[in-house]
């Protein structure tokens, strides 16, 4: 065996592992934390990464021009496989309950018609929330109340508000009531604060509020896009994407909007930040030389 490309390294989850080849170099550099480290190499268009747990990364891959698939990547061995081997239609925007049992995602069901699917990944059962008739769809689902409810964005009557349903797709409750489009709900670990993006003041900005819609606080204020906010696992920081410097870059800020930090700085796109469960790393999708891959960056 050629040991020149082997490394014994410590993953963000604390595991020691032996890895080889390119992956060895990758993992060592990742732990050392400097420049963003590349996790995938196929270059296909990707979206919406999220962690299932500290070992498994889920993301959406434009597998074919007519098909987006949800893939799962094992960070220990680098293997990538479809999450739903029976998927026949476009699937988008996956999110997982804390215990990893439930996955919520979007699935195209007809011409410009997209349903919300709450799937028990152990029992392979699904609760489906259908869109209204005609052209209609859901957006940006997530879990809260420790995996007991699903929150999402849904457009009707010319605005797009944030709603939630239970795991059976029932008991719909409305969390925002505002002109404009409201997106990307992200709950604090305590479920006491709901972070979201909104165009209510004219362009994409990031806000925080109580789940009942009260005590709304605007956290960003810039004429270009501030989008895709995500609470850190400890609830103390927010990662988001901003176009404020002329292209998409990843930023961090405190939960009150202070202490803005730029994480990436590259002439091509860095987008879709998601926190590793260790709270010290972000995974994002970066465009480099025209290709789109997953990268991990240390932010601690």
């Amino acid at each position: 065996m050629d040991f020149s490309n082997m490394a014994i390294t410590k993953l963000p989850n604390g595991y020691l592992t032996i890895v080889t080849g390119v992956w060895a170099c990758l993992m060592v550099a990742m732990v050392e934390g400097s420049e963003p480290q590349r996790l995938t190499y196929d270059g296909r268009i990707k979206m919406g990464p999220t962690f299932l747990d500290d070992e498994e990364l889920i993301f959406v891959d434009l597998a074919k021009p007519e098909l987006t698939s949800i893939l799962r990547m094992n960070l220990r061995d680098g293997t990538i496989e479809p999450l739903h081997t029976d998927a026949k239609s476009q699937e988008l925007e996956p999110a997982f309950s804390d215990d990893g049992v439930y996955c919520v995602f979007l699935r195209a069901r007809g011409a410009l018609s997209v349903e919300l699917v709450i799937r028990n990944e152990r029992e392979k059962t699904e609760a489906i929330v259908p869109p209204a008739n005609g052209f209609c769809g859901f957006r940006t689902p997530a879990f809260f109340r420790h995996g007991k409810r699903v929150v999402f964005s849904y457009a009707e009557d010319g605005r797009q508000d944030i709603f939630s349903v239970n795991l059976q797709g029932e008991d719909r409750q409305q969390h925002t009531q505002n002109n404009g489009m409201n997106y990307w709900p992200s709950f604090s670990p305590s479920d006491e604060q709901l972070l979201f993006g909104s165009t209510r003041d004219g362009n994409y900005e990031i806000y925080r509020m109580k789940p009942d819609g009260s005590e709304v606080v605007r956290l960003t204020n810039h004429p270009f896009q501030d989008v895709r906010p995500q609470y850190s696992p400890d609830g103390k920081r927010i990662a988001f994407t901003s176009h404020r410097d002329g292209n998409f870059e990843i930023y961090l800020m405190d939960t009150n909007g202070d202490n803005l930090q730029r994480v990436t700085n590259h002439p091509e796109r860095d987008d879709f930040p998601t926190w590793h469960p260790d709270g010290r790393h972000l995974v994002m999708i970066s465009e480099r030389q025209g290709s789109h891959d997953l990268y991990m960056v240390e932010v601690d």
């Binding site: 195209a108 011409a111 410009l112 997209v114 052209f135 769809g137």
Partner: peptide, 22 residues
């Protein structure tokens, strides 16, 4: 090749009756 923005079996086109901004 296809016009529809998101429809099973079709490429993602510019016809954004939903998800226009996204």
């Amino acid at each position: 090749r296809h016009v529809e923005a998101i429809t099973p079996g079709f490429e993602f086109g510019w016809d954004t009756h939903i998800y226009n901004f996204d």
